[in-house]
Design a protein around this nucleic acid. Structure first.
Lengths: 247, 247
DNA sequence: GTATTGGTTTGATCCACATCAACATTTCCG
DNA sequence: CGGAAATGTTGATGTGGATCAAACCAATAC
């Protein structure tokens, strides 16, 4: 009696963790795969890993071996300079891919730290290479993911190089909102998982400036802020902050 | 008599433009390919294109179709915001790859403009995908190139987000010097192909600040500046500007 | 319950870089 | 060649965001 029961339990777990059943598959997988191909993918992603708040999936200098698809939770990636200054290079949520920085030099070049208890799917890079030689759709998908990361970073460069504080924060909020939306969450209300200091580091501002700018947006009726809870009250207004004269 | 002569001329031209003979192959191609594989590559890169100073290889919004390996010359890539502000996102020289921003959305997201008369090898992206499914080394190489672009951009984010003007310019000069070196040119003397304004745009500074900082470095004996000609006199000194206190 | 700690807000002041302006030099092109 | 336009330098002044400082608040520990 116990044997079949156990078997069923394992079945269910296997099912639950399978890519084919993952609620994020539109986000994270190519479309139009055959049943056979989906099974191969399920085999590729055989490990999932829980990452507690504050822990990292990988750290700079560490040997590269796998990519990580975020299944749930929230991460930041950071770079550290020799003199200790560090900089947040990105915030990453469910469906995003982490670790692509490691491919070029075979070691990671940033830290990926969980901002809340999270879970990632481990994708052994060697397997991904193999499979993407066999499966055109997978190859294409992977290349697109990398390319989009390049484009995302272009956007951050634009933000850091050409925008004023208010524009940076508005762009940041709109971007977050958009990403939450595309994952089926509310566009107008969400909880920040990062501190003011982390936002500041990402935006090239000091935490005081971030705080002041939040307050200003609130006074202007653009957003409601209560600690980490943000409500976007006037998204058009926020958009018009972008590209507006210093006035 | 004229027929064989003509044939020979064509032969020589084919030979000259072949990847297998390109002086940049260490820069731009994977290592350890068989003769057969190299021939396939030569067939993939069947077009070269001259780009005059000021002209662009591709522009933002344009349909994506090919990557471009720089064979000679110098490029900048730029992003333009709705309100007209534009930002240089990178400077690119022989051996660098352009166009990877276009893969993700099937259209380019920046402009690639020649800063001097240049020549690029056109790599039809579909062919590259095909071949990299057949040739492991090519696949691996291509992935590394993309990954390195991501890491390069991380570096720029660090620069824009955490460094002061002097640090930015010092990092910029050291980076240029290092890239010239790895291409067999002098590490200590080179000609800038871009204007002060373009440098400023890339570094998130105004052209006046760039000019002043050049002058300051010159006073301090770190570099010699004569318009676009730069001599690095004290590269250790330049390095020590990085991460130094505002003093 | 109180103490402690990490995070946030807000005010006062400062400074690195932007802006404005004048001029010098180089490059372009008829 | 010569004149215009583009680029570069340098000085004087202004300002957005940094820095310094002091409370305040929320969450957790005791």
């Amino acid at each position: 009696m116990s044997a079949p029961k156990l078997a069923r339990v394992i079945d269910i777990r296997a099912l639950k963790s399978a890519c084919s059943n993952c609620s994020l598959r539109e986000m994270c997988l190519p479309t139009g795969l055959s049943q056979d191909e989906i099974e191969k993918l399920d085999q590729m992603v055989y490990t999932r890993k829980r990452v507690k708040r504050g822990d990292s999936v990988y750290r700079s200098e560490e040997k590269f071996g796998s990519l990580y698809a975020i299944r749930s939770g929230f991460f930041k990636t950071t770079l550290v300079m020799e003199d200790g200054r560090d900089q947040v290079t990105g915030f990453h949520m469910a469906g995003d891919m982490l670790g692509m920085d490691g491919i070029g030099s075979d070691q990671h070049s940033c830290n990926a730290v969980a901002l809340e208890d999270s879970e990632v799917c481990v994708i052994p890079y060697g397997r991904l290479e193999e499979l993407s030689r066999e499966m055109f759709m997978l190859q294409q998908h992977f290349h697109k993911v990398m390319s989009r990361e390049i484009v995302r970073e272009h956007g951050v460069m634009l933000l850091l190089g050409s925008m004023r504080a208010e524009e940076r924060l508005a762009a940041f909020l709109l971007n977050l909102s958009q990403r939450f939306t595309s994952r089926g969450y509310s566009a107008s209300e969400f909880n920040l998982r990062m501190t003011r200091e982390e936002i500041g580091s990402y935006l090239g501002l000091k935490l005081e400036t971030v705080s002041r700018t939040f307050s200003k947006f609130q006074e202007d009726g653009l957003i409601g802020v209560q600690q980490k809870n943000i409500r976007i009250l006037d998204s058009e207004g926020l958009k018009s902050v972008l590209g507006r004269d210093p006035a």
